[in-house]
Amino acid sequence: MSYILGIDQGGTKTAAAVMDEGGKILGIATRRGAYYPTDGMVSAFTKIKEAVEEVIAQAGITREQIGTAIAGITGIDWQGDEEKVTEELKKILEISDLHAYNDAVIALYCVEEGEGDMVLCAGTGMNAAVRDGEESYFVFGDYIEESMQGGSALARRSIRRVFDAKIGLGPDTKLTELFLQFSGEISVDGLLRRYMMEPGFSGEIRFLVPDILKTAQEGDPVAKVLVEEYAGRMAEYIYVGLERVPRQKKKKTAVLAGSVFKGEENLLTSQVIRQVKVKKENVDVILADCDPVIGACRMGMERKNGKEADNK
């Protein structure tokens, strides 16, 4: 029996998983995340090697039993990156049938019934990928504006509403108390000073995203409009992404993946789904049903089955 190795490396987490031929996950191992364009390949891919070695041990198999490996790697954004990263990982992991893609691509496979036509991934940042051919993918990457970079951007938009309210550019909002409690400041003046002057604070506020969404869900008018506007722009990325899908079928599938969309009553998720359906009735918008590293394994399974069919 040969096994499938899935790899997912983002800025926050590196994960590796092993799947058997029946689709059962035999183990998952994690390490800290990395971004190889700035951290360097050696540093970033050492974390991958450590996670792979651990998950192989968990699964009780040997490296030689890995038949196919799929890696989703953040930072694969430019022409030639896939080949460069694929070759480097083949050497480091000593696996010949290994293929590396941008980490958004593996999230296309985070749906139980086959693959999605496109995926919108929103966590700390945001990316999207479209399957525009049998083995061809278009990744949005840096085409996505900074003001839409996932939870980080939503948090920055939210704190700006607090500052607008302070100077009279907008109405009062419960977001003010939310940010004051998080920061430990007693005034918006102090909050503004910390936001502008303290290195790292503007990044830390992304952890408030679940509370920002809850504030909107509870009816705060400012937060609610903010989330609706943000969802509308997300929906536009889905519109244009699906236009790139070449397959003609009755319904196309858009997948929502990442921590920003999690939660049973997530207003952002429901708004994105609603706004997509208003414009494109022939689209199913569904939430990812697994972590991206499992999507990498599923992608590997499809590749393995396709190779076996070709060889028959």
Rank of each mutant, 00 (worst) to 15 (best):
K90D: 07
G306N: 15
I28A: 02
F207E: 05
Y109I: 07
R63W: 10
G150V: 00
D117C: 10
K91A: 14
I25C: 04
I144P: 01
E308M: 14
F140K: 08
G10M: 02
L287N: 08
K251C: 10
G67M: 07
K13M: 05
D310K: 15
T176F: 05
E146N: 09
G11I: 01
K280T: 14
T46H: 10
I144A: 04
G40I: 08
R194P: 06
I73P: 11
K252P: 14
I106M: 11
A44L: 09
R161A: 15
D220Q: 06
I95V: 12
D103W: 02
I205W: 01
V272R: 00
E135G: 11
D20M: 01
A100M: 13
E308L: 15
Y239P: 09
R298P: 01
Q65R: 13
F45S: 05
I286T: 14
E281M: 11
E145L: 12
S183Q: 10
E281F: 13
T173A: 05
F45G: 05
K91D: 13
E113S: 12
A129D: 04
G232A: 09
V55D: 06
Q271P: 04
K84I: 14
R31E: 12
E204Q: 07
V119L: 07
Y3H: 06
F201W: 12
A231S: 01
